[in-house]
Simulated assay, not measured.
Amino acid sequence: MAREKSVNKLFIIRLTKAMSEKGLRQSDLAYMANIGQGTISEYLNSEKGRSPGAAELGRMAQSLGVSMGWLWGLEDSSTSENAPYVQAIHRLEGKLQFAKKTLRGALDYLEEEIESDKIVLNKLLPSNNPSCPKQ
């Protein structure tokens, strides 16, 4: 007999509320918390029955400026003294991660192009010509 997944409906309600209050879309929260947008979507879909782990819950709570306990439904108050600062830090961390991935992709592309150009040059330039620079 298959075990039914338990769904924390209060978590879904509070996650939706916090996102709405901050004017955030799923993609915004995903970017800020460094979680896939599809994963956020699954957290919000009670039929999927997917719940975040502690690390993801913590990143979402910090990004939204609420406590993990409130977001999960263990606390009544959502206030966090450092909410604006934490949210700004996580937004910057998300941007930094994006920049790193973009830069890594650009560097990989350039390395491939350089190797390709070397092959072409080696075919075009005679290897015994002293006036031609060697690679």
Rank of each mutant, 00 (worst) to 15 (best):
A2E: 14
R3Q: 07
R3W: 00
R3S: 07
E4G: 03
K5D: 08
S6D: 13
S6P: 03
V7R: 13
V7S: 11
V7W: 12
V7M: 13
K9N: 11
K9R: 13
L10Q: 09
F11C: 03
I12N: 01
R14F: 04
L15F: 08
A18I: 08
M19G: 05
E21P: 04
E21S: 12
K22R: 15
G23N: 05
L24R: 07
R25S: 11
Q26N: 10
S27N: 12
S27R: 11
L29C: 06
L29V: 06
A30I: 01
Y31N: 07
A33Y: 01
N34F: 02
I35T: 11
G36T: 14
G36E: 15
G36K: 12
Q37T: 07
Q37V: 06
G38D: 15
I40R: 03
E42W: 11
E42Q: 15
Y43H: 06
L44F: 13
L44I: 13
N45A: 09
N45P: 06
N45T: 09
S46K: 14
S46C: 00
E47M: 11
E47L: 12
G49H: 08
R50F: 11
R50Q: 05
S51H: 00
P52D: 11
P52K: 02
G53F: 04
A54H: 08
A55Q: 03
A55C: 02
E56G: 09
E56Y: 01
L57G: 06
L57H: 07
G58H: 01
M60T: 05
S63P: 07
S63G: 15
L64F: 01
V66M: 10
M68Q: 13
M68L: 05
G69F: 06
W70P: 01
W70D: 02
L71S: 05
L71H: 04
L71I: 14
W72P: 00
G73W: 01
G73A: 01
L74P: 07
L74R: 14
E75L: 05
E75P: 01
D76T: 00
S77I: 09
S78P: 06
S78I: 02
S78L: 05
A83M: 02
P84F: 03
P84H: 04
P84K: 00
V86T: 14
Q87K: 10
L92F: 05
G94V: 02
L96K: 10
Q97H: 14
Q97P: 04
F98V: 12
F98K: 15
F98H: 15
A99P: 00
A99M: 06
K100G: 05
K101N: 14
K101S: 09
K101P: 04
K101V: 10
T102H: 09
A106G: 03
L107I: 15
Y109A: 08
E111A: 03
E111S: 04
E112R: 15
E113T: 02
E113Q: 13
E113H: 08
E115V: 10
S116P: 04
D117H: 04
K118Y: 05
K118T: 08
V120E: 12
V120S: 03
L121I: 13
L121N: 12
N122D: 05
N122M: 09
K123D: 10
K123W: 00
K123Q: 11
L124Q: 13
L125T: 04
L125N: 03
N128W: 10
N128Q: 12
N129M: 11
N129S: 09
P130W: 00
P130G: 03
P133N: 08
P133R: 07
Q135T: 03
